[in-house]
């Protein structure tokens, strides 16, 4: 993998744009149907890197979604610096 960060390493409070999803068909489709696809902006609600078993919670479209670390580490993201404006 290149130098692109994945969702799994983003700290809570950060806003990121999904660049690519390197997961299998099933997982990608499940993510898409919950509203996560390349181009989507999500906000990381909680991500405790000290506990590798805990999932990452993100907020998308006003809804919180828990994503397992396994899948999250296959979601390539681009951090956004702009503040919350919605």
């Amino acid at each position: 993998m290149g130098s692109n960060p994945t969702l799994a390493v983003m700290p809570p409070g950060s806003r990121v744009r999904v660049k690519a999803i390197l997961a299998g068909w099933n997982a990608s489709w499940r993510l898409a149907s919950i509203g996560i696809a390349p181009g989507t902006v999500v906000e990381v609600v909680s991500n405790d890197i000290a506990y590798p078993w805990s999932p990452i919670v993100v907020r998308i479209g006003g809804v919180e979604v828990a994503i397992g670390r396994g899948i999250a580490s296959r979601i390539i993201v681009e951090p956004l610096n702009e503040p919350l404006n919605d």
Partner: peptide, 13 residues
């Protein structure tokens, strides 16, 4: 095509 370890993607209402 079958994932041995299921992945978690779950909405939290």
């Amino acid at each position: 095509s079958v994932e041995e370890e299921p992945q978690l993607v779950m909405e939290l209402p």
